[in-house]
């Protein structure tokens, strides 16, 4: 697929909706379109977080496994969102498994490439952080709400 096409796709993704075109241009150089089949793992806990995945279509479950308990899904992520944020902070290692629940179309970034460009151009780096931070804060907030166990009989 042509680079222009990717830029357009990036611009249309909620995560990059507000980003300046020149930054999209720069980031598109690190990106490519990728598909996963239902059941595939995008990555496993402990893997290097060297990719960023923006979901274009499909659903991914974030899981942690334990002996005797199988895979425990703590969150599902769907179209328009980003999978995992560990690629942005050292030691760049995934803390959970990402498991495709359906056939997936994603934009896959080379995280090293993005980090390199962000380090080289702090203005770009800040712009990327500003796009990522709301997702991070929202996930944290949602996790807190989940922990409150709002729907238990006591509430």
């Amino acid at each position: 697929m042509a680079i222009e096409g990717l830029e357009r796709i990036l611009a249309g993704h909620p995560l990059f909706a507000n980003m300046a075109p020149e930054f999209l241009d720069t980031l598109a150089g690190c990106a490519k379109n990728v598909r996963f089949a239902a059941g595939d793992y995008l990555f496993h806990e402990g893997d290097d977080a060297d990719h960023i995945y923006l979901i274009r279509e499909g659903q991914v479950s974030l899981e942690i496994s334990a002996p005797g308990r199988g895979s425990m899904v703590f969150q599902t992520v769907a179209s328009g969102s980003v999978i995992g944020l560990s690629w942005i902070v050292p030691p760049y290692r995934w803390r959970f498994d990402a498991h495709a629940r359906s056939d997936l179309r994603v934009i896959e970034f080379d995280a090293r490439c993005v980090r390199g460009k962000c380090d080289a151009d702090p203005v770009l780096g800040y712009a990327v952080l500003k796009q990522i931070m709301p997702v991070l804060v929202e996930r944290l907030h949602d996790t807190r709400v989940q922990m409150l166990d709002l729907y238990s009989a006591g509430n």
Binding site: T76, S79, E138
Partner: peptide, 23 residues
Amino acid sequence: VTVDRADPSWHGHVGVVTAHLRG
């Protein structure tokens, strides 16, 4: 439909209901 805590039989969403407003 989303649940706070999933079990292996569950194939739907996991997370808070507000996460689905945007979509």
